[in-house]
Design a protein around this nucleic acid. Structure first.
Lengths: 150, 150
DNA sequence: CCTTGACTTTGAGCGCGCTCAAAGATGTAC
DNA sequence: GTACATCTTTGAGCGCGCTCAAAGTCAAGG
């Protein structure tokens, strides 16, 4: 068909995935059969790139392949499926919002625990001034104490 | 040993996981062999719960089991491993920060695309006033146009 | 002509993190 | 006594999302 466009390799690089994954996505219907050069090699267009970027973005935020397949199918059917597709995106966006909250909580917990470790390290430095025998372990607190923070 | 403490079932509920997963975590060394009632059933303490909550939090933010195992091993060795453990947590926290950025970008992209879908739906409503034949599809824009947003 | 390299296809394999099946022990209720 | 629920163990199975192996085609370079 066409000899212009991105090779599978360069498209994979541009989108931060492997050529394997691009072929896999085409196999499972996430990407429509893409244009080919005269030798049968895939040639990706800019429109393909935009779509693949979108796919990557959804995957990177944990949308299951199944749901992406459903979305891709609806997309093939045209604007009449707008509402359905919008629902998918809204649901996923809500999931993302929840994920962000969870990540922020974990981030805060880690800040707390890391500060606690710094304290422990400080105490060790005081209790063992200029002493470096790794066998001598200070039992400053129970193994579980740090976990009672979160 | 003891007959007080949480059953595996209640602990699973408290921590938002299944009893299967709790046993699995114990098998792979994420949880130290826990106390037992006289009949051999597991009994979890509050200290266990704090640790399990922490495990759950790390898993929920995509820390691999392998890394959690490493952390758990170091924890068993006591305060001498503080620095190493802190490094694990700091690395994971950095990963979380990156994840949050990625999620926020995806969230913004979805806001944009959802708005676009609303426009399309509005146009359909105008072009087909009070007409509800699902076969009549308005080809308002190419299938790929929406993807060129991101 | 022959090698090299980038691609093609199909189908199989893999790592992760559970998840479950099977068979058995124990405690409570009727 | 006997049903029922809840737990125990071990080892196998599974769903997801790739990832790769094998064998083949084609074009360019030496």
């Amino acid at each position: 068909m066409q000899n212009s466009g991105y090779t599978i390799r360069s498209m994979a690089e541009r989108c931060g995935m492997t050529a394997h994954t691009l072929r896999y996505y085409e196999r499972v219907g996430l990407i429509q059969p893409v244009g080919r050069a005269h030798n049968g090699h895939r040639r990706y267009s800019d429109a393909d790139e935009a779509w693949i970027h979108f796919l990557h973005c959804m995957r990177a935020t944990s949308m299951p392949i199944r749901e992406m397949q459903r979305y891709a199918e609806l997309r093939e059917l045209g604007d009449a499926t707008s509402l359905e597709r919008r629902k998918i995106l809204e649901d996923h966006q809500a999931g993302i919002a929840a994920q962000i909250v969870e990540l922020q909580q974990a981030h805060a917990l880690l800040t707390h625990k890391i500060a606690n470790y710094k304290k422990i390290e400080e105490r060790i430095r005081i209790d063992r001034p200029a002493l470096h025998a790794p066998e001598v372990v200070c039992e400053l607190e129970s193994a579980g104490e740090l976990e009672s923070v979160g």
